[in-house]
Simulated assay, not measured.
Amino acid sequence: MITIDSLRIRDGKRMLLDGVTMHLPQSAVHGIAGEGRGALLRAIYGDLQPEVGTISEAGHPLQRREMVLLEADPRFWPGLTARDCIGLVRWFDRKVNPEALLRRFPVPLDTEAASLGAEARKHLGIILTLMRGKRILLLDEPFRELTPERIFVMQQLLLHLGSKGCTVILTSTRIPLIEGVCDDLYLLGGGKVLARYEHYELGHLGRDAESGSGFPEN
Rank of each mutant, 00 (worst) to 15 (best):
M154L: 15
E149W: 00
S6W: 05
L62A: 02
D5N: 11
R121M: 10
E66F: 04
E119D: 12
R132K: 15
R90T: 01
R10F: 12
R65I: 00
D18M: 05
R103W: 05
L137A: 10
R90G: 06
K164A: 11
L41H: 01
T167L: 13
V168K: 03
Y45G: 10
L194K: 14
A120K: 14
T21N: 15
L24P: 04
S27I: 14
A28T: 15
D11R: 14
T54S: 15
K134E: 11
Y186C: 11
T129D: 11
R8T: 15
L158Q: 02
D184W: 06
A82M: 01
L101V: 06
T81N: 03
Y186T: 15
A72C: 07
G59L: 02
W77L: 15
H204L: 10
I2A: 06
L187A: 06
L157G: 04
L16Y: 04
F92D: 08
A195R: 08
H160D: 14
L62H: 08
R83F: 00
I9R: 04
E145M: 08
P106C: 07
R132F: 02
A39M: 04
V89R: 03
G12T: 07
T81V: 00
G34W: 06
D110K: 10
Q63K: 12
R103T: 13
C85M: 10
A72W: 05
F143I: 09
R94P: 13
R75F: 02
L205Q: 05
L185E: 01
L16W: 08
G59S: 09
I9K: 11
Q155D: 00
R14C: 02
T147A: 14
G59C: 03
E35Q: 15
